[in-house]
Design a protein around this nucleic acid. Structure first.
Lengths: 170, 170
DNA sequence: TGGGGGTGGGACAGATTTGTTTCAGATGGT
DNA sequence: ACCATCTGAAACAAATCTGTCCCACCCCCA
């Protein structure tokens, strides 16, 4: 509480006046993050817009939201609030349907479980915020790097298709 | 402490006798995790073995270590121990050199900063543990999914190369 | 000049955590 | 049976955290 108040630039007293209990504080913050996330999904049109276009809008998500979402998932107290757990599950399911739709449309590889894509994408989004925060990635490069890594991976085309079996050996 | 002791199946007293202070406990555990990680890097031969072979050995890393490493990075107290921070930096640099070597050998895309590859790979490794833990990914599929997602991404070959410009439109 | 309304500092009791000590019981080797 | 060693339960003081007061202060508006 002391640290939170200090980070927010207010006193512990004010923090308490604004949110009351500690439990209600995490609840309010979590609700806000989830709602913001849902709003971004809406704006990107992940339910109905063309998959690749929605994907491109999605990866421009503001990084601070990714940070907040990661911190929310890292907060153990959040999992004790049934409504929040339910909401997180709902969002995951929604995101999973997006990837499944992409697979049906031939955009995403069908052999990868859509649920795994949710995890993988989310993890890389968090990693991107972290890398930017640590100063290793510029804000300008962020979207490009995320798009490249998520969509086409890190291997070169030559290395990714070793079936022809004619490269790499001296 | 109470929870840690319970999770370890011992009493709080024994935990204290074994590690003394709480600070020294996190320090000892962190040291162990870092050392284990370094040992796995050695075994995989990330400094000198052929890049793709080392990569394939690396992605078979035991998931519990990824879990422990993620928890270590999530522990705020760890960053107050200068030696640990230094060690983490050393490991990151070593891993970054691995990716740079892969780029020099034509295995990894040269346009992605090696440091970002460290972040992206680490994030997906953590995500994989999480997905397995949540029951969405079987232990048997784990390595395959990680390899596919990291190396070649999630897009189909058709969607990944939209330059020819002849697919996806009805 | 005189209030509202919001804010911070300080103080407070209650709860929780932490580190330590003591003692009783279990284990295992000789 | 005996001793060494380890463990857990309980109790304890010290420290920290939490939630709530109260009061002084500041700022803005009338």
């Amino acid at each position: 509480m002391q640290e939170i108040a200090a980070a927010a630039g207010v006193s512990r007293t004010t923090l308490h006046r604004a949110f009351g209990d500690r439990a209600t504080l995490v609840e309010r913050v979590s609700e806000h993050v989830l709602a913001e996330c849902s709003r971004l999904f809406d704006e990107a049109g992940i339910d109905e817009a063309p998959v690749m276009a929605a994907f491109d809008r999605l990866i421009e998500m503001p990084l601070p939201l990714a940070k907040a979402y990661a911190l929310l998932l890292a907060e153990p107290g959040a999992y004790r609030i049934a409504r929040l757990v339910e909401e997180i599950r709902t969002q995951d399911d929604r995101f999973e349907r997006f990837f499944a739709r992409g697979q049906a449309d031939g955009i995403f590889r069908p052999e990868l479980p859509p649920r795994w894509l949710v995890y993988s994408f989310g993890a890389q989004l968090t990693a991107l915020w972290w890398a930017v925060d640590d100063g290793f990635v510029g804000t300008r490069d962020a979207t490009r790097l995320l798009r490249a890594t998520v969509l086409t991976g890190i291997a070169t085309d030559a290395a990714a298709a070793p079936d022809p079996g004619s490269e790499g050996k001296p």
